[in-house]
Design a protein around this nucleic acid. Structure first.
Lengths: 188, 188
DNA sequence: CTTTCTCTATACTTATCGGTATAGAGAAAG
DNA sequence: CTTTCTCTATACCGATAAGTATAGAGAAAG
């Protein structure tokens, strides 16, 4: 593994454990076994390091979400696929997802939040466009895309947060229940 | 307003805007118009300042939650009261609630998270005991208190997060819908 | 009128913060 | 053999981090 990958991995571990603001670049380079100029050569700044982490490792989630939200002719099936997609990703990248989750509700002027906000907005936009498409099949959804997208993400993240803390298992029954619970707030 | 109160207020503003880790004590005392020994006289440390903020200003929420969860003979009514209580508190203390919310899903080894975790655990415990009581009326709830308490908080915080960002209004209809949505995942 | 206690300011500590100037090692290209 | 480019280390920058030693101001208590 080259030094760039080592830096990304150690930064993820440290950010996910104690938070972006609480970690200094010195600690990252020590854990990675390199020195500061190496980090600044590859990423330019501490901010650039987090941006690289987010852009590179979170992109698969965005891509799969774009695919899952591209059609809305069977809304319940699409919702189940979206839940499944998030659970799969969180299981494949628990540290990354936990880090993103910690910044989800975070604070507007915080640097880490602003970096993560870009991909958060992408997810929100994809989900909103899904609900716009769905409203051509379910007329009573119209105009509520923002709230639907946000509550869907809220429900997903609540369950993933529970799973990350070990309180629940990610069974097919759980996915089904989560979809049902969310749907009940939608079709009414 | 005395210096102690000034320090608490300015610390809340700064913590809620940029996060605990991103704020230095120097900035707090400057905003409050005092000097560092004053802060250390009243709170002993930066950590003690956040602890005082949480303990003093979040206590009313805990107290009201303890009252609302003390009986469970009418579960839907109690759930509505709990939702209403959280919305009322978030409207009365938006900065404090936003700060707490930002630390909700936060990271285990982070100092700010550990401080807020105490009151989070209190809320979780009160809600769990409510669901234990409720299970004497609804037998199928037994053994699921932890998950119910966590998903209830998740639903509440999703809606409050939406309200804090200005996306929704806190109408009685919204409370009703949120209770319905949560209940649908419970009684099944 | 003096002692005592609470509170606050000046000035300082050591350690760490993010970031960089300089230089050198090593491989690739001519 | 020399030039060029990528990568990394030593040593440093000014600024800021949390926290404190010392002293004094002002009110309360004796």
């Amino acid at each position: 593994m080259d030094n760039r990958a080592k830096l990304l991995e150690q930064a993820l571990h440290l950010f996910a454990q104690r938070g972006y603001d609480a970690i200094g670049v010195q600690e990252i380079v020590e854990q990675a076994g390199v020195t500061k100029p190496t980090l600044y050569h590859y990423f330019g700044s501490k901010r650039g390091l987090l941006e690289a982490l987010i852009n590179e490792r979170l992109q698969p989630l965005i891509d799969r979400l774009a695919h899952a939200t591209s059609h809305a002719n069977d809304v319940p099936a699409s919702l189940a696929a979206i839940f499944q997609l998030y659970f799969d990703f969180a299981q494949a990248e628990p540290l990354l997802y936990h880090m993103q989750l910690a910044m989800w509700f975070s604070l507007p002027d915080n640097e880490a939040f602003q970096i993560v906000a870009v991909s958060s907005a992408q997810q929100q936009a994809l989900l909103e466009s899904f609900f716009v498409r769905a409203s051509s099949f379910h007329g009573n959804m119209r105009g509520r895309q923002r709230v639907y997208a946000a509550t869907l993400l809220g429900t997903i993240n609540t369950y993933i947060g529970l799973w990350l803390s070990g309180a629940i298992q990610a069974t097919p029954q759980l996915i089904h229940q989560a979809v049902q619970q969310f749907s009940y707030g939608i079709y009414s």
